[in-house]
């Protein structure tokens, strides 16, 4: 069981990812943009932060860089499906260098759980 912070601007997408994680036994806190996510991350301790990269309000890349610049910070998964004219790989290029793992949307529930497990199992 892990404490997971999930950041995604699209409510249905966030909801389905959170439901999948909760069913797998994790505790999930949701945030709808990068700055709210960072606020939550500063206040509470999380084992893992999963953040979307391309979000209108504040970009997920900031989240990845901020969290990974802290010593002893949480593990971070960057996820993206890309955007108009930008492929998922391109969107994940920057944060991919810092994040502990990347998820290319669309991904299956199995891939999500597997990725989370590989980062949090000790």
């Amino acid at each position: 069981m892990c404490q997971i912070l999930l950041i995604d601007d699209m409510l249905p997408v966030r909801h389905s990812i959170a439901a999948t994680l909760r069913k797998a036994g994790h505790d999930v806190v949701e945030a709808e943009d990068g700055s709210k996510g960072l606020e939550l991350a500063a206040r509470d301790r999380f084992d893992l932060v999963i953040t979307d990269i391309m979000m209108p309000a504040s970009d997920g890349t900031d989240v990845v860089f901020t969290l990974k610049s802290q010593v002893g910070g949480p593990k971070v998964i960057a996820m993206s499906g890309g955007g108009s004219g930008i492929s998922a790989d391109e969107a994940l290029q920057m944060s991919g260098t810092q994040a502990d793992a990347v998820l290319t949307k669309p991904f299956t529930n199995e891939v999500l759980i597997e990725t989370v497990h590989s980062l949090t199992a000790r």
Binding site: P12, V13, S16, I17, A19, T20, K23, S84, K105, T108
Partner: peptide
């Protein structure tokens, strides 16, 4: 642009159904 929107809409459908 259409595909991105569709992907975002389809992800919850497939994910929640299989969950």
């Amino acid at each position: 642009a259409l595909a991105h929107q569709l992907n975002n809409l389809l992800h919850p459908v497939a994910s929640l159904l299989s969950l």
